[in-house]
Every structure is written in C-alpha cells, then in structure tokens.
C-alpha cells in the first residue's frame, strides 16, 4: 500500500488532493500543513511519494525538497510540486533543487492521478 504525503497549508486544497489520492487504489494519505510538519510526518511514517505546495508558512516546499534530497533516508522519495507559480523559471528552479515533477494550479485531478501513478506504479 503506497503512502502519499500531502503537504499543503490550504485545508481546501489539502482535502481536495487527499480526496483524489484516496481514489487511487490501495493508497494511504498522510497530511502535513507545512515543511516542518512534513519532516515530522516523514520521521514517523514510511512515505512513498510527496506532493508539496511551494508557498507555505514556517517552511516552504522548495526548502522541504532540498532537505529531503539532502537526507540519506528520504533522498529517493519522489516529490511532485503543486503550486500556483506557473512560470517556467519557477519550474526549472524546483526541478534543479530535486523535485521530480511540477504541476501548476489549478490542477486537473485526472492529470494529477496519472502523474502520481507514474511514480507509485498504480
């Protein structure tokens, strides 16, 4: 059962993504409200995929990606960035830091599910 960590400060968006992820067969969703909360969840749960927003309080998504990539335990976990920042340079920056994919908001649920499946092999 793949474990998906959804890191998003907006409760609406978090619920929306989680709702979509729960529809992927056999997947479990863990929610975090920011980067720091995500690191806490990572230390207590085995995570197979991270879906993270960029603009979040306390710790943003890019900082989270760089910390995940710098940690030998979490460095191989794929990260998908879901953000309102749709510019090409924002995407390049996120990919350079270590994000595996970049999805600008507003997201199409089908597109997100397809992308997630390509990482967790659903």
């Amino acid at each position: 059962m793949p474990n998906i960590l959804v890191v998003e400060d907006s409760p609406t968006m978090r619920q929306l993504i989680s709702f979509a992820m729960k529809r992927i067969s056999n997947s479990k969703v863990v929610e975090a409200t920011d980067g720091v909360d995500a690191l806490k969840k990572l230390s207590s749960e085995k995570v197979d995929l991270i879906l993270a927003d960029i603009n979040m309080p306390v710790m943003d998504g890019l900082k989270l990606v760089s910390l995940v990539r710098g940690n030998p335990i979490y460095k191989d976990i794929p990260v998908i960035i879901i953000t309102t920042e749709g510019a090409e340079e924002d995407k390049k920056k996120a990919i350079a830091i270590g994000a595996n994919a970049y999805l600008p908001k507003p997201i199409q649920t089908q597109e997100l599910i397809k992308l997630v499946n390509s990482f967790i092999g659903g």
Binding site: T12, L16, F19, R23, T109, Q110
Partner: peptide, 17 residues
C-alpha cells in the same frame, strides 16, 4: 464520467469547506 466524478469531488470538497 471520471471527469464528472472529479468535478463533483472538487465541488463537494469546496462546499464542505
């Protein structure tokens, strides 16, 4: 139907929130 389902899920979450 899948698209409609997703849209309904979005609308449900939005109204629930």
């Amino acid at each position: 139907v899948e698209e409609e389902n997703n849209n309904l899920a979005n609308l449900y979450v939005a109204s629930y929130q």
